[in-house]
């Protein structure tokens, strides 16, 4: 049984890799974190087969948790009425993990970030594994880098199920912790080597070669990212492009007003009357030709010092996301230089 976590780079074709692994004679279940990616995957599957085949199941992660793991085995016991997406109140962290109140709010909804813990606590993991083994031949989990907290533990536990497992993700695209709970797995995204070791320890082989080359970014952009952000990324492309820092006022003005080039801000892009987006939010976008990245003061300083790699992990990852949106050129502008245009 093949169990691996494929750590890909941006634009390396993660979705394509999954779609190519699907066939009508293999029962596949694909779990993905975001609603966006769920629709994207369905779209790609229909493109491939003309419809969603009976053998292929696509679920968002929380549907998987709730309908696949929780409901068949714990519904009668907990009788939950849905999911509460808010952070659980602080006092609950002091409760015993066997206390129902830890998992379920006063109106009967399960705390989203603790469903995985509930599965473990109630020892129904075995049932979940059997269900996977029995009904599927391969499991794909996309956007693995979005799994934190208890969800990451569940991801590791699933590997004992008897089916092929392919986790796919881009470590450096981990930009926010959506399902953090207290200190559980708080620091797994701080160190790439340590992160891989987590998988290795439970028998999942980390694979950094299969999807190490980007189809989107040019060799120049890749070289820049590798050198300045300290993130290894290579390119499949044979065209070349530029990575430019713009300083001339006229150039800056022209780029700012250009409706072809998206301006990517660290935050608050809405303040600027131009085609814009925030770094983190641009994740998943792959149609930009050129991108123009605004550097906020601290990033600006790091850029000047050639020290971008030492930005805090979250900011660095967002910057990585921003850079890798470009199919062609990447421009940098100091954010202070465009302050004058803000509304």
């Amino acid at each position: 049984m093949d169990k691996r976590v494929i750590l890909a780079v941006a634009g390396a074709g993660k979705t394509t890799h999954i779609i190519n692994s699907l066939s009508l004679d293999k029962r596949s279940i694909i779990v993905t974190y975001t609603e966006n990616n769920y629709h994207h995957l369905r779209h790609r599957i229909i493109q491939k087969f003309g419809f969603i085949p009976e053998t292929v199941t696509v679920l968002t992660y929380f549907t998987f948790l709730y309908s696949f793991c929780y409901k068949p085995f714990l519904h009668d016991k907990y009788r939950a009425k849905g999911i509460n997406w808010n952070t659980p109140p602080g006092f609950t962290l002091r409760l015993r993990r066997s206390d129902k109140i830890f998992y379920i709010d006063s109106s009967g909804r399960l705390y989203s970030n603790r469903i995985a813990k509930l599965i473990e606590q109630e020892t129904v993991l075995g049932h979940v594994q059997n269900r996977l083994s029995k009904y599927y031949d391969q499991l794909f989990v996309d956007e693995v880098q979005d799994f934190g907290g208890h969800d990451f533990n569940l991801l590791k536990s699933l590997c004992s199920a008897e089916l092929d497992i392919n986790y796919v993700g881009d470590f450096y695209q981990h930009t926010f912790d959506t399902s953090r709970d207290g200190n559980v797995n708080k620091s797994i995204y701080n160190d790439f080597e340590a992160y891989q070791a987590h998988f290795h320890d439970v028998g999942i082989i980390p694979d950094t070669t299969t999807l190490s080359h980007s189809y989107r970014c040019t060799p120049q952009v890749c070289a820049f990212i590798t050198e300045y952000l300290g993130i290894n990324i290579q390119s499949h492309k044979d065209t070349s492009s530029e990575v430019l820092f713009l300083t001339e006022a006229e150039q800056i003005r022209e780029k700012f007003l250009c409706n072809e080039t998206v301006k990517l801000f660290f935050q608050n892009h809405m303040k600027y009357p131009c085609l814009s987006q925030n770094w983190g939010k641009s994740k998943g976008q792959d149609h930009y030709t050129d991108v123009c990245i605004m550097l906020y003061p601290a990033a600006m300083k790091a850029y000047k010092d050639g020290d971008l790699r030492n930005l805090n992990a979250s900011s660095r990852n967002k910057l990585y996301v921003a850079c890798t949106r470009a199919n062609n050129n990447v421009f940098f502008i100091e954010e202070n230089q465009v302050k004058q245009f803000s509304c």
Binding site: K71, P72, F73, L74, H75, D76, V124, H127, N130, R131, Y135
Partner: peptide, 13 residues
């Protein structure tokens, strides 16, 4: 898969 689960009074899958 739609029928299988433990939600019954026997509490077996």
């Amino acid at each position: 898969i739609a029928l299988e689960g433990i939600n019954n009074t026997d509490e077996t899958v």
